[in-house]
Design a protein around this nucleic acid. Sequence first.
DNA 1: AATATATCTAAGCACTAGCTTAGTTTATGG
DNA 2: CCATAAACTAAGCTAGTGCTTAGATATATT
Lengths: 189, 189
Amino acid sequence: MARAKQYNEQQVIEKAMSLFWRNGYESTSVRMLEKEMGINQFSIYASFGSKHGVFLESLKCYKSKINSVFEKLQNGTDGVNDIKAFFYDSVEMPAKMGELDNKGCLLTNTYNEFANNEDQLIQIQMKEFMDDLKTVFIQKLSVNSLKDKATIEKQANYLLLAKHGLAAASRVNNKQEIDDYIELTFSNI
Amino acid sequence: MARAKQYNEQQVIEKAMSLFWRNGYESTSVRMLEKEMGINQFSIYASFGSKHGVFLESLKCYKSKINSVFEKLQNGTDGVNDIKAFFYDSVEMPAKMGELDNKGCLLTNTYNEFANNEDQLIQIQMKEFMDDLKTVFIQKLSVNSLKDKATIEKQANYLLLAKHGLAAASRVNNKQEIDDYIELTFSNI
DNA sequence: AATATATCTAAGCACTAGCTTAGTTTATGG
DNA sequence: CCATAAACTAAGCTAGTGCTTAGATATATT
């Protein structure tokens, strides 16, 4: 055997995630990652292969961080109210994760930044994320409901776009505006 | 006098606008602008001073292009229905402007790209755009309405965020999803 | 036609990007 | 205690960024 790594890959990825979250993918340089992660470029490339590789790991890391919120939504038994609570949880998540000002949702930010990009790996991650969300929304909307399938589908699409818009808005708008938005969004359901 | 310019500044700005619209600010390089505008870098800098200057002119150009839609909203006499029509008009606008696939709204895209940026000139343009929209929304919501001021304010904020989310969604989602979203958005206003 | 002056071309500037590599340091198994 | 192999440092690579400039070109006026 030889020398052991002087950093923990999980730990440095969390720092990378935070940086990508703040700046987006393109605006984050490998030099910035070096400083934030506290390791040399060589180590970054040895552990993750490329800047792109660091980003994919950061997305995974983010997903695991928000998993508790998503599980709470899945395990809820209160139908639409669970979705509404999920909206509130999502907005409050960044603060609870220790981010000072609100950077929105890393996945949604990425979705926007890569909207017209042909990066397959990212597109797949994004589609997976959106599809999972839609599936749960449909399930929640069906609880104790007499709505027909078409209505539920429409409402799920509506909430998916609303959730997406909310994540973007949370980067700019204040709490009152956000709360008003959520309340009015669900008054239509 | 001497040699005359061999290009029309308005014409080349329209091409620049189209390019910025497709790629965003950062992802558009001066070399790309050269090709798209059909003029040399020297001419770009002689006419507009900087890449940033080209972008500001492109935003102005875009604003004038969408002005007809905004005027239609202002001149309407049908209250909330005018806002709803404005939502539909906004989504259909890119196609009518000859853009092949939907790039959303250049102003909204810019708003997102510069959300955490300290560029003052851009921030002012964006704030102006949002404030104008909110003012008209409030005015339209007040037509033939018994709603109190607080309700109108809430609904205006709600519609502003919804319009913002819609512009982002229009880059990715299909017509059916977009239409469903607009219909549900206005179902309780 | 000659001159003056603005436009245009293309090469080049300093800087940053993502990534690589030569060479040094460090810890472990024999 | 030394050889080995991985981790580390720092310098450097190519390509691309926004922007500038020296020099060639074209045209309206004298």
